[in-house]
Each structure stands twice: as C-alpha cells, then as structure tokens.
C-alpha cells in the first residue's frame, strides 16, 4: 500500500510547553484516518504541521511523498485543510466563497465549480445569502465544499463535527464517506470516539504528545479484554429518538 502520510519522531514545543514528543504515524492512500485525543493533546498541532502552517522542531513528516519542511509548496498543491474553526468568509455569500477559492486554485470555470458544489452540498437555496446568516451545519458544509475545490488528493478535517447537531453531524459523515469512496485520503481529528468508530479505517490515539495505540478498530478491540456477553433490553438512544422524530435520518 502506498502511504499518503509518513510521520517519524515529530516534535513540537511552544515555549516551555512540549506538545508533541515524538509522534509516529502512517496513513494509507485512499483511507480514512482518525486521530483521537482529548483537548490539548496536540491533534491540531499535528494537523498544522502536516498542512505546512507550522514548522516542526524535530522529526520528519511527508505528505503525498513530499517533505513538509523542504517542499511545502508541493504539499500545498496536493492537500486541503478544513480547520477547527470554519474557515469561511462571513461577509461573502456561499457562492462567492466557493468562487474565490476556485479562482485562487486557478481553475478554468469558477462559477461552474461553485454551482456543482452548492448542489452537491444542498446549499443552492442559500447560495446568495451572506454566510453570517448560515447555521453551524451549513457553514461546516460550505467549509468542506471549499476544501474539495481542485480535487486535492488528501483532505485534513480538524474536528469537523465539533459543535454540530446530530443531523448536521451525519451530513458531514456522509460527505467524508463519499470522499473516501472516490479515492481521496481523509485525515480527521475528533474527540468523539463514536465518530472514529463509524468512519475510520485506521485509528490512532494521541496522548501526552505520543501515539499510544494505533490500528483498525478491530485491532484496537483485540488489544483489550474480550467483550462480555450480557443480555440487556435495547433502549433507543436519545440521538435515535431525536432523529426518528424529525424524520431526517440519513438524508443529506
């Protein structure tokens, strides 16, 4: 398998604070990789280094075969970053945001690209409204749509569903799944264990500056005591009730 990301011994400190103390990880091309960790574990720092926004203090990191410190420009051509805070322009409309990014990626037909993405992400109706009027879920969808422009080989999603309602979260999950199905590598960070379990082919847990475990969900499960069999009445979760009532489950 070809590697989309190879990281060895990655180190990063902010002044006295040693955030990354030697992170090792590998991500296979076309897979969904989830980096799990609590707040402040260094997930965002890792993403920023891989997306060439920060320089590492030590170790090596290669993205799509390019070293992030020696050929950042090549890395930038092959990736897209959806940061933790929706990186959209609030004063522009949804359509203008998409056209702006398409023009910055020097695509032939920015309007056409924007129209396609608006349709695909269910934003056609809101296309000409200012983004400041959008809901959190719409903003996130626009944010991800902006990241897809130019068809990058690898997309970073830093906590894509933090702060979203369950419906919007499922919308984002569907997008991530579609991306992976079309061959794009997805590197996502999350605090929600369920999200990693649902989506990821590979999971790594970042704790106190190091990857403490990694593997597929099955592999992780084998490292822990076998599941006990218990018979309990299956109650619907609140999320299931919520989604059943509003009747929009699985709808994009």
């Amino acid at each position: 398998m070809e590697k989309a990301i190879q990281v060895k011994g990655l180190q990063k400190s902010y002044k006295q604070h040693h955030v990354l103390k030697g992170v090792d990880l590998e991500v296979e091309k076309g897979s969904i990789f989830a980096l799990l960790g609590s707040n402040g574990a260094g997930k965002t720092t890792t993403v920023k280094i891989l997306a060439t926004l920060l320089k590492p203090d030590g170790g090596t990191a290669a993205v799509n075969g390019f070293d992030v410190t020696t050929s950042p420009e090549n890395v930038r051509w092959s990736i897209s970053l959806t940061g933790q805070f929706a990186a959209v322009d609030e004063i522009l409309t949804g359509r203008e945001n998409l056209i702006m990014i398409a023009r910055l990626r020097h695509l032939k037909n920015p309007r056409h690209v924007a129209d396609d993405l608006l349709k695909r992400f269910g934003l056609t109706g809101a296309a000409d409204r200012k983004v400041s009027t959008y809901s959190g879920g719409m903003r996130r969808r626009l944010d991800i749509a902006m990241s897809l422009i130019g068809n990058p080989q690898l997309i970073f999603l830093d906590e894509p569903t933090t702060g979203l309602d369950p419906e919007a979260r499922i919308g984002v999950w569907n997008v991530v799944q579609e991306l992976a199905d079309s061959g794009t590598t997805v590197f996502l960070t999350t605090q929600y264990l369920e999200e990693a379990e649902q989506l990821a082919d590979q999971i790594a847990i970042l704790h106190e500056g190091r990857i403490i475990v990694s593997g597929t969900f099955e592999e992780l499960r084998k490292q822990f005591p076998p599941a006990k069999v218990e018979y309990i009445e299956k109650q619907p979760t609140l999320e299931e009730i919520f989604l059943a009532i509003i009747g929009k489950k699985e709808e994009k």
């Binding site: 060439t52 926004l53 930038r76 897209s80 805070f85 990186a87 959209v88 609030e90 990626r105």
Partner: peptide, 13 residues
C-alpha cells in the same frame, strides 16, 4: 482569528 488565513496559507498561493 477566523481561520480564513489558515486556509489561504495551506493553499498553493
């Protein structure tokens, strides 16, 4: 603050 600079800076511009 809003992260739009991060997007620009992670793009090949």
């Amino acid at each position: 603050q809003r992260g739009i600079f991060e997007r620009f800076n992670s793009m090949p511009i």
